[in-house]
Nucleic acid binder design. Structure first.
Lengths: 193, 193
DNA sequence: GGTCAATGTATGCGGTGCTCACATTGAGCC
DNA sequence: GGCTCAATGTGAGCACCGCATACATTGACC
């Protein structure tokens, strides 16, 4: 890698700059386009194509970073849950991530991902395993795979339903309360006798 | 309403034709644009704007139709479930709808919906109520709202995870088996003693 | 039969992703 | 130090998009 040469013809580290710029636009909720990212990075419209073959590749890189952030968010400062109540907090954290960074969350999950991006595949697997481990710790007697999938489904579905305004909620606190209640209710349900 | 005048200057029933054409393109998995729909309907690129103020309005109309189809699909030829097993089949039907008509399902759920379209809001509410009724019938002792939300979350989340290829599955049969197992597992989970 | 609102068309603007030919330059070799 | 070359930037251009605006056609009603 050559030393950065900011201000000269060659940018120095365009790839990283493009990712950072694009991520910033996502956080600000702005629409996203290769050209817009290039513009904001102060570079010609075609320069990004030297570093990403197409738009999807840039999105994949952002998604991978988002998945790592999500995993860190879920794991960070929190022990693996041991009770349904603690598990519910895990789910709340998942949904809150989605609401805090909606555009990024959609990029991570809201489209068919290409399985070519090794980095992205690995980051997704890490999230999957983290959720599975959380569930297995709380419900050791159940089939871990089935239950982990169901548990992921609950929080993932709720996240998207709130994101897409299919459920009304006045505030993020209200969302958290509702998610907590729903996760607990599902895992505590008893069929009619 | 004037009589149809096919072949003449005025189309006769462009609005319905546009919806049908667009729905056909969705089913075929084709990309979707106002211009492409107009082209396929044999009409100028700007004609659709006489019937839909913008692209989102057309999408909303399609989404409303899709929501009605989903409700009919779930309710049709099936009594409300009385056991967790029957409830799981309800969930399987939800996910199978998503996999059978992926582009439509994304239109229905995969974006912030505008709450202006009265028809769409009503269709969405019907689906919501149907799911809530299904769950309440199986688990009469739980808080119906919390549980209905959680149950919707499970199937909705699984539907999107499969749609987005976050979960691998070789066939729709395999998906159905997995969804069935996961829904049952969630509602049967018992925490560590 | 004339009028008018509804509904079609043609043209054009600014945006997009992406390709291709060309420019610049830093690094490595002599 | 100068040459060469691959990496990485630029610019012009294509086909497409959503949408606005001005204009054309026509069926329904008086």
């Amino acid at each position: 890698m050559p030393e950065a040469a900011r201000g000269s013809y060659h940018h120095g580290d365009l790839r990283a700059t493009l990712i950072a710029t694009a991520m910033g636009m996502l956080e600000r909720g702005e629409a996203f386009s290769i050209r817009a990212v290039a513009r904001e990075a102060g570079v010609s419209a075609t320069a990004p194509y030297r570093h990403f073959p197409d738009r999807e590749a840039l999105e994949s890189a952002l998604a991978a970073e988002g998945l790592r952030d999500l995993a860190a968010d879920l794991a960070g400062g929190r022990a693996l849950p041991r009770t349904p109540e603690e598990l519910a907090e895990f789910g709340v954290a998942y949904v809150e991530f989605a609401l805090r960074r909606p555009a990024l969350f959609r990029l991570m999950f809201g489209n068919e991902c290409n399985t070519d991006d090794e980095e992205r595949v690995q980051a997704a697997a890490a999230v999957h395993e983290l959720l599975a481990a959380a569930i297995t710790g709380v419900f050791p007697d159940s089939d871990p795979l089935d239950l982990a999938l169901g548990g992921w489904g609950v929080v993932h579905g709720l996240a998207f339903l709130y994101l897409d305004r299919k459920l009304s909620a006045a505030s993020t606190e209200e969302v958290a309360t509702q998610v907590r209640a729903s996760v607990r209710a599902v895992f505590a349900a008893r069929p009619r006798t």
